[in-house]
Nucleic acid binder design. Structure first.
Lengths: 208, 208, 208, 208
DNA sequence: GATGAATGAGAATTCATTCAT
DNA sequence: GATGAATGAATTCTCATTCAT
């Protein structure tokens, strides 16, 4: 457990440095200086620089994945729109709680290693698929207008990513307000006209 | 002109390598090997690796900027929606025509240099402002529903960026179809309900 | 202390190489080979080659400066001639004790860097001024004949420098004998005729 | 002959550059740029950079050698002191007429090549011998007091060298005045007391 | 002869990683 | 475990010299 604490200490400082300067501009000297450990000690806890970075990146991927829940249908479930809203809020909460990790994921996770790039690509591809499935479900339920679900899913992902990226720079963003704007924009973008007509108000949700 | 041809040759090969492997994994040795020139020859045409990369990046930024036209209003102008569509098509045309440059811009332009990161941030910030101004104009014209124009602008930029990024991987994407989907999604996302009701068809444009 | 020992080791070998081959013909490879350390180790102790050289040169300048004492007048002080003799002996002692440093200073300290050349020029300019002041004092005391003290001071400096340079090549020079010759030549060169007449012997000093 | 003119042109510019910046800081690019010839053209006239430098240096050595005449005794010859004065004046005239060559010889002729250093050492050794022989002749003639002629010769050479070096920096030095000071200092430094007593005036020459 | 683009050996420096203490 | 000095492969960049036109 002591071991875990040391690892965590190093990870903490490395995370800050990577977020601030990126992978290549951050060297082992910087990390051990910040973590106040000896150069050699670093290698007692991590195989190498890449492994450390990978661990941070994995944490980000894992955490974000965990915050995106599959849309569940059922009488006791919140409305799909509410579930989407919850997903967005959870992701943005993570973005703010872990600005450094997010920064690393969005801005510094490329240019490392071939299989690394692949992993991130897969991660996003997976999210795109999830969104796509939701859209297809929505179409079946007549909530979503027919469209090229893949392209629209990509647009939605891109929108969230860019909001996340831009949000990093802001001191005290209002997550709920951001989520609302994203949701409103996205839902209107995909809603059937019937749905829009039925629910002209601000929160665009299926009437019960 | 001879000089320009040589430069172009080196730029061509460097571009491919940067797109394939990123900035840090591409070293001068790789570039000169691909371009089939001697080590020293490289330095006759470029001060250093960074300058070469900068030149490529600048080309991408310049070209994309040039393809995003400001929305013009007037009796002889195409409809705003058509102008947006044209912008998207022009940008996606560039993405396909210069997949490598796009790849570099989207995936490998970070983690280089402090002032570099800044330049790219400015580039996107500028585009966000442009979109935001268009949205505000649309609101005044009652084409766009009131909303947090900055957040929505960020969503739109993100959508286009992500489509561009995903499109890079596809062999023969249909640019018009992609543009149509983006436009449709985006316009519905921001349209006033009045406008939506008036134009229920697929192409969401203001009726004349 | 360990650190200082390593530095000293590298300095020692670098000094020998610089004396033997000069600055430009001595490269880092030579130095690390002689010092039997790895390439990178060099940079743990010195920023770069120039800094190392500078350190050696500074030592030479400092040491020589320290050995040239200002002429003191007073009832308990040795005669001015004796003080001059002591200065010369101390400098020549250094020359022999640190042949390599002297060689570097006299023969290899040019052609490096602009500000470097300046530093050495200042060093000699300072010594010329010191000699000049002594001569002027001597004139006031009627020990030295009136003359262009600056030019004569330059002659004296040049004489000592050249003796030092030539002495480097000799295996077992007699420092006292050399000093005596320099002193005798220099003093007679500047002495008033009155003084010469009063002290016709070998050691040309003011009679008490 | 055209060929000689071209060579001279290149030599002229190279000389200025070498004097200004030294051998190592002056590169072929600088020289051909100043001489307004193409890179390759340089090698039509000179084997390489070193040969060019060597040629300049040889000119300096040759010219200075030529200006140092052996002391001739005889009824129709000027006095030895006058001959010495003439030697000094000729050398200083050269110093001023060819400041750049002198600068090169005094400040930038080391650190090139092993055999180069040797050549310069020989040059000075030769001059020292000449002076030494003059001194020995003087001793025989009872003009010069007995002394370690080699050390004194070195002092004399050093004096002249240093005056030459310092003179380079001055805008309009008075060569005759400098020569007079050097001569006066040097002659008094070596004169027999008998000679000094016989000729107490300023110009220390053997009475006829 | 003249040109200047091309060459490539060589030099300095960095930095992730190892290993003796 | 902890340390930090040592390592050396890898990389960038320079510049005297060559050579096809």
């Amino acid at each position: 457990m002591e071991r875990q604490a040391r690892r965590a200490q190093v990870l903490y400082h490395a995370k800050r440095l990577f977020a601030l300067q990126g992978y290549h501009r951050t060297n082992i000297s910087d990390i051990v200086a910040q973590a106040r450990i000896a150069r050699g000690t670093f290698y007692l806890y991590f195989q190498n620089k890449k492994e450390l970075f990978e661990e941070l990146l994995n944490e980000a991927l894992r955490e974000i994945s965990a915050r995106i829940h599959r849309i569940r249908l059922g009488p006791n479930e919140p409305s799909p729109a509410q579930q989407l809203r919850d997903n967005i809020v959870r992701v943005l909460d993570f973005v703010l709680a872990e600005r450094e990790l997010t920064d690393i994921l969005l801005n510094h996770a490329y240019d490392l290693d071939r299989d690394f790039d692949g992993r991130i690509r897969n991660f996003y591809a997976h999210i795109i698929e999830q969104i796509q499935r939701s859209l297809e479900l929505g179409i079946k339920m007549n909530l979503v207008r027919p469209c090229d679900t893949r392209t629209v899913a990509i647009c939605i992902l891109g929108g969230v990513k860019e909001v996340a990226a831009q949000t990093l720079a802001e001191p005290h963003p209002d997550v709920n307000q951001l989520a609302e704007q994203i949701l409103d924009f996205g839902l209107r973008g995909v809603a059937t006209e019937e749905l829009l007509r039925a629910a002209p108000g601000r929160t665009l949700e299926k009437p019960h």
